[in-house]
Design a protein around this nucleic acid. Structure first.
Length: 286
DNA sequence: CATTTCACCTGGTGGC
DNA sequence: TGCCACCAGGTGAAAT
């Protein structure tokens, strides 16, 4: 479900509503899959902690947690732990009230001092929940991810071009590789390749400097606009308040197989690339 | 090492 | 209505 714009939207929503709140208790389902950290360790770690801030990195939602509230609203307390949520394909993170009916496939419920509840719901169970203790004296445990890809919203031309240099794989497959760029998934890979006028199967290392710069800008612009519209709700994505996004209305190729290209009218084609449905305009993309 | 394929899950849709 | 094939926003392990 969620790529960078959806994860960003959810993280902002959770941050707005939960910042400063205290986690009273955490409940987890008995399914083993979603827990990168064993559920009892998560429950123990989360209980009593304060949500200092919530942000996105790549496709991860990171809740910065502390054991004491900041001294004042303008100061920031040092986090001592993190709760990291990856939504997989169908994961939802919802701020709700305890009396709202519990949806099927609810795998985590965090009750908060304010009376609110943070719920993690994930039908396919591809999502992952992780709890980390931080130690700022140990550089390996300051909260950095193991192999973080570059952020597509802030990467510059030189660094972007360097990611693909010498690579033989298809540019679309390269865009999906989270250790190169973090946050791009199937929708935004297809959409940004369309806006850059580049065929998904082109070898990444064979793109010209001009094409790479078109791609970098198309990617940034597409992601920014999607964030403004609250993400793409293709089937079931909703933000932390349960609201759908609107960027699906702006899709030019994704899931538009056979429909006319919005630019030239040529039917959109679908191929399989890196095991994923891949959509492009055979006339606009070269 | 780089790259590709597949398994992990449930649910929705469309054909017969 | 049922049954079946196929498709879906993601990743990480295994195979090549």
């Amino acid at each position: 479900m969620p790529e960078l714009p959806e994860v960003e939207t959810i993280a902002r929503g959770v941050d707005e509503r939960l910042r400063g709140d205290r986690i009273v208790e955490a409940w987890f389902s008995s399914y083993p899959q979603p827990f990168k950290t064993p559920r009892d360790r998560q429950a123990k770690g989360l209980a009593g902690r304060i949500v200092l801030s919530v942000h996105r990195t790549g496709k991860h939602i990171v809740c910065e947690l502390g054991s004491a509230a900041p001294a004042s609203a303008s100061t920031t307390a040092q986090p001592d732990s993190q709760w990291i949520v990856h939504l997989g394909m169908t994961g939802r993170l919802l701020v709700s009230t305890p009396d709202e009916p519990v949806a099927a496939h609810t795998h985590a419920r965090l009750s908060l001092a304010s009376g609110r509840e943070l719920r993690f719901v994930d039908a396919r169970r591809f999502g992952r929940l992780e709890f980390r203790e931080l130690d700022f004296r140990d550089p390996a445990r300051t909260g950095a991810f193991d192999a973080p890809g570059a952020e597509p919203l802030s990467i510059g031309p030189e660094e972007f071009a360097a990611l693909f240099r010498g690579r033989k794989l298809a540019i679309k497959a390269a865009l999906l590789n989270q250790t190169l760029l973090a946050g791009v998934g199937n929708i935004y890979a297809d959409e940004s390749l369309f806006h850059a006028g580049i065929r998904p199967r082109r070898a990444a290392g064979r793109l010209t400097r001009t094409e790479l710069e078109r791609l970098r800008r198309a990617l940034r612009k597409t992601l920014q606009q999607a964030i403004r519209l609250g993400g793409s709700s293709v089937s079931d994505y909703v933000d932390a308040n349960g609201a759908r996004g609107f960027f699906q209305l702006e899709h030019c190729v994704y899931l538009r197989t056979g429909e006319p290209c919005r630019r030239c009218g040529t039917p959109i084609r679908r191929i399989l690339l890196a095991g994923r449905g891949t959509h492009f305009c055979p006339s606009c993309q070269r």
